[in-house]
Design a binder for these strands. Structure first.
Lengths: 347, 347
DNA sequence: CCCTTTATCCAAACCGCTTTGGATTTGGCC
DNA sequence: GGCCAAATCCAAAGCGGTTTGGATAAAGGG
């Protein structure tokens, strides 16, 4: 019904050239206000909207941002990834950009980027989940494809644009909080430490301990995908050991829930017998709210990060000459119900 | 470096016409194998790949599928949505399609669909989260935009293509399992019941009770966003009441975890003092695995649903004359550790 | 040997828009 | 009235592919 008018037909109906109609609709000054009005009314009436492929072809801009996610990534960062996407997506649509997501086999990731560049599918991309050994930025530079990193690429902080939270500092503060409460046996349930964010968190943890003359106990440090059972199983194992931790520092709310479950199963009261502090990405389906949140946490909205990352990227695209820019967010430290003073020496 | 060869240049390098080169690369028969080989080699060497905008314009196919997600939806179905997307995305890329996702304000949803249609941004769309009062399918039909529903639109099952799990049956079976174990006071923590999937689940629950001559107690039925605290708070309230339930039937693992937490806090042992059965969407970051899974559940992979939905849609697109098709998946009923016989009458 | 196929390849039109480089009209000013 | 600048509008040339309708050459048939 309302389908199918193109510029040509529209301009014929108006007895105007395509040029004029196009200019009228795109807000160029060389058309009288009267004509512009006449044009927009007719366009509205006929339900005209420019064919995006044609426009993209003519302007040479894809008006789209790419996100390539290798299969493996969304197994470990599933919900975080989506929250980021949601934030970025809002920014995109506000600016008339499309978001295109490619889910690819791990070994096709490079291919995916090459295709985006050579077929001009997107004007830029977001790089997710940088690892310690990271090479994507080199490829993208070679492909001349603007990009923003969510996280940081170690060694390339200067030359790339990125948005990241201060992982090291957050975990240092969290650790200090526990130390101040008298805990000395603190377990770290970290994410996969070949990822940049996780190594930084570990560093923050270790440095805080070191500053008080403590050495981390390898038996209390784990690194894996941040699932719920990961939290539960490892906490259970540690709590049942001869020398159990009195506190847990955890990289994700999901795993923290698992730890709380383990504590419950061991008959320990969270916030009393055992303290838990977690990083909270502020995922909408895992609200950790209330006057006193369930979990004491370091919190940083990954959704906000998504919005900002998108803005950075859009700026880069419209202003290609600009230098790399970056945003370093600080996590809030929020005291909830899950932490308390270290219990008096047991046994 | 490897950037920037177009068809014209490529064909000049080869002393061939654009026609021939195009045909050679697209596998048309009217070109000799020898030439085809020569062409592909040169294309490879120069890093040629057809500009996707140009191709889309020429062929009239967008080679993309749209997913429009209103802001509100991803607050309630965040992780499920992503898992679906991941499944669909794989199918798309296997078939050379792009996935474009629009995150829009709730009141712009219709607009988003109109734009996709009029600007030819996608060849089809997936409709997420159908409600009891659903109108999107009418709009899409009017816009002549092929679509597949994830879930079902009540009253339009015949005329639309969809993929859904058997929600009613799954919850009926789950309820029967509890009844067989001797539970009679069963709580239902459902999703938002203005959504189709949730009303069906409720129906399954109620029908199973009715079949044994039982009437559901309104005090034991809740409906809300399926967050973790939702599970915990409501379970807590019910467990502390005068006449507490002995079993919970829950619409989502996330809330089930909350219920388990509440049980723990009340000093009740899950699977013994209180039984829990949940629906499990098989989300990768919430594995409910092991020989005997933590939670007894009805399980249906939403990721698989995504794959299949994409296939349905792609079929519709390449075969527009075909009748609506649909896929009705049955959830598995899996016995885990969280269910057991009803405790002997307490008090 | 001539004519008809068949196998290859090509020139040009087209997809629907933007944009360049004028052409025409109008208005202000001396 | 004549001239110049500003205001409008337009024809046509891209953008980079695909596809139609031949043209040309080689092969096969009588």
């Amino acid at each position: 019904m309302s389908n199918g008018v193109n510029l040509k037909e529209l301009s014929q109906r108006l007895n105007l050239s395509q040029t004029t109609v196009s200019r009228a609709l795109n807000g160029y000054p060389e058309v009288s206000e009267e004509t512009r009005k006449r044009v927009s009314e007719m366009a509205e009436k006929l339900g005209y909207a420019p064919n995006s492929q044609a426009r993209r072809l003519a302007t040479g801009r894809a008006m789209a941002i790419g996100h390539v996610i290798p299969r493996s990534i969304h197994e470990m960062m599933n919900p975080i990834f989506l929250e980021f996407i949601a934030g970025a997506g809002e920014t995109y649509s506000r600016h008339g950009y499309d978001m295109i997501i490619s889910v690819v086999d791990d070994d096709k990731e490079e291919d995916a980027y090459r295709q985006i560049a050579s077929r001009k599918k997107a004007d830029g991309v977001i790089v997710h989940g940088p690892a310690n050994e990271e090479h994507r930025h080199k490829l993208l530079k070679e492909l001349n494809l603007p990009f923003v990193v969510h996280g940081r690429i170690p060694g390339a902080e200067r030359e790339t644009s990125w948005i990241d939270m201060n992982n090291r500092r957050a975990f240092e503060r969290a650790t200090n909080l526990l130390l101040d409460l008298g805990h000395t046996r603190i377990a770290l349930l970290n994410g996969l430490e070949h990822m940049d964010f996780a190594s930084r968190r570990r560093r923050g943890f270790e440095e805080a301990l070191a500053a008080r003359g403590l050495t981390p106990d390898p038996a209390l440090m784990r690194s894996a995908d941040m699932t719920e059972p990961y939290g539960c199983d490892n906490a259970m194992e540690m709590l049942k050991s001869d020398n159990p931790p009195t506190a847990f520092l955890i990289s994700s709310m999901i795993s923290a829930i698992g730890v709380a479950r383990a504590a419950g199963q061991c008959g320990l009261k969270t916030g009393k017998d055992v303290s838990i502090i977690t990083h909270d990405d502020a995922l909408s389906f895992l609200p950790n709210s209330g006057e006193v949140p369930i979990f004491t946490c370091t919190r940083s909205s990954v959704r906000y990060a998504g919005e900002k990352a998108a803005e950075l990227l859009l700026n880069m695209i419209s202003n290609p000459a600009a230098k790399p820019a970056s945003l370093h967010l600080d996590a809030e430290l929020i005291i909830g119900q899950s932490t308390g003073p270290a219990p008096a020496a047991s046994r």
